[in-house]
Amino acid sequence: MTWRRTLATARRVLEQLRHDPRTIGLIIVVPTALMALLAWILTDADFHKYGPPLLGIFPMLVMFLVTSVATLRERTSGTLERLLSMPMGKGDFVFGYAVAFSILAVIQALVVAGVSFLLLGLEVRGSAWLVVLVAVVDGLTGTALGLFVSAFARTEFQAVQFMPVALIPQLLLCGLIVPTDELPRVLEWISWLLPLTYAFDAMQHVAMNPTPDTRFWIDLGVVAAMAVALLAAGAATLRRRTP
């Protein structure tokens, strides 16, 4: 793995996106529109409660879909095979995508959070910047999950179908619907293996507390570590030789 090849890959992915403004629009507009819908259907109190966690979850969903389809296209078009027959590290490929989509995740989080706080009247006790930070890490986790899961899909149809498999159970177990300590014991243990649980906990912490404590930073660190582990696992699924 080299910085030159990783960054060239990131640049190439961003250049591809630049030629596809509609996709960039969707990545940024969809989570923003979903937040607006949420603000509309919930009372102010409920919006302040559910808004911040969902502000982290929507980017994760969007980035998961974009990444899993993008990497699947590399497999089906033969470009991945070409790259792997060249002096390209598996890590160059995976982390190149991660760098490109992180940049996109930052823009996405700034717009979604900006609109939510300034136009939709979202309020948190902690810093709005920490909300943006958690949203970016969530977006990156979605990218990492998408990269990993796309290894198990043969077609775009299958890749899209992996979203309910990879994300809905996390959504049900993260604490949003039932607090994790009220879940059946086994499910509570499982919930602590899933990145969204930590992301939710971190976001809820910013919503409720004026200053972040150690638990917030541990939560955020765990999510980031899981994202990196998923990226490494995604790199390990790449095969230079195929049947």
Partner: peptide, 29 residues
Amino acid sequence: RSRVGYVTQAPSIYVDLTVRGNLRYFATI
């Protein structure tokens, strides 16, 4: 990997990049 050039039957290039964009990327790799 840098001494063998391989061209598959179906063109394996990026359709959403320019010709030069494709070549520049592969040249860097």
